[in-house]
Design a protein around this nucleic acid. Structure first.
Length: 301
DNA sequence: AACCAGGCGCATA
DNA sequence: TATGCGCATGGT
């Protein structure tokens, strides 16, 4: 299917590699492959048109929501550009969209992310999916997808054939009763017991995503933090990347460095209410655009 | 061979 | 409230 992104800019690479998700990868022909909502998904963009290769084809609304294609990001950029540094970050990282990811997947992924690096985070998440998820992209799906893809240009079938097989992220129910020891194949280290605690609290209803979604930010954050291994940063990642609470403001070490360098007194007034959006531009800016070595690292000189 | 990685829990003052 | 340290694992 083809969808026109509202107000132009949607950049798949910026969106997928700005640190909000861990399962998307670039494949051939300008396509990106990922898994969401239990589907194998291929995406490309050209001149404002977002092409989505997925089966079944009749869920456009779902993908509009997942990719946030109906939000006008130029309004965010315009607001944030009142500040010089944010303006530069927005320019450099144009095309970022905040995905609406599954809450459980986001929670587990960012528990895994703590004191960890991105390649290893992705590896642990992938092993979780391979071990406990459902295999998708079998030959039946492939045939259906190739038929579906015929209107999307000749590039997709090649990209698809090479990357057809994938595993869904397991639902919490699938992991019911799991203990840290059962997660040994993931090689998640000390995070295994955090994952187990999250699974237990989600399945028992102690942590209820619908309730959390309806709560104001502070209350929602506190609820998530009842899970062992979830602090302010992981909680805010869930609130921003799963519930799209734009005032959530995950402070990782990179954002902290930016804050101490540019905003010792806090974000400027133009970011009020959209701190999370500002955070994402800033994070991508220092990690993927600006020379990383040029940012002030450490506390001394 | 130390040091680091999208943090967090716990101990200590 | 504010520091400091250990933590599993894997890559430089």
């Amino acid at each position: 299917m083809e969808i026109m992104a509202n107000a132009g800019e949607f950049d798949p690479a910026r969106t997928f590699f700005c640190g909000q998700c861990f399962r998307w990868k670039a494949v051939s022909g300008g396509w990106y492959a990922g898994v969401a909502h239990g589907r194998r998904l291929f995406v490309s963009e050209n001149g404002g048109a977002v092409r989505i290769g997925v089966f079944p084809e009749n869920e456009e609304g779902l993908w509009r929501e997942y990719f946030d294609l109906d939000t006008d990001y130029s309004e965010y950029v315009e607001r944030l550009s009142a500040d010089e540094t944010l303006a530069a970050a927005c320019r450099a990282s144009a095309g970022i969209h905040i995905l609406r990811q599954d809450p459980f997947e986001t929670l587990i992924s960012f528990i895994i992310s703590q004191n960890n690096n991105i390649p290893r985070i992705s590896g642990i998440v992938e092993r979780l999916c391979e071990t406990f998820g459902d295999r998708i992209g079998g030959s039946g799906d492939l045939d259906a997808s190739c038929g579906m893809a015929s209107g999307l240009g000749s590039e997709l079938p090649a990209a698809l054939a090479e990357n057809a097989e994938a595993y869904t992220f397991p639902a919490a129910k699938r992991l019911e009763g799991i203990e840290a020891g059962d997660l040994a194949p993931l090689r998640a280290g000390f995070r295994a017991r955090y994952i187990a605690d999250a699974v237990e609290k989600v399945n028992s209803g102690v942590v209820d995503f619908d309730e959390i979604n309806a709560l104001p930010l502070d209350k929602a954050r506190e609820r998530l933090k009842t899970i062992v291994g979830v602090g302010d940063k992981v909680a805010d990642c869930v609130l921003l990347f799963a519930f799209r609470k734009t005032d959530a403001f995950p402070r990782d070490v990179w954002v902290k460095r930016i804050m101490s360098e540019y905003y010792p007194g806090g974000l400027p007034a133009c970011a009020k209410g959209i701190e999370g959006i500002a955070q994402q531009y800033l994070f991508d800016y220092v990690r993927n655009v600006r020379n990383v070595k040029s940012i002030h690292v450490g506390n001394g000189e």
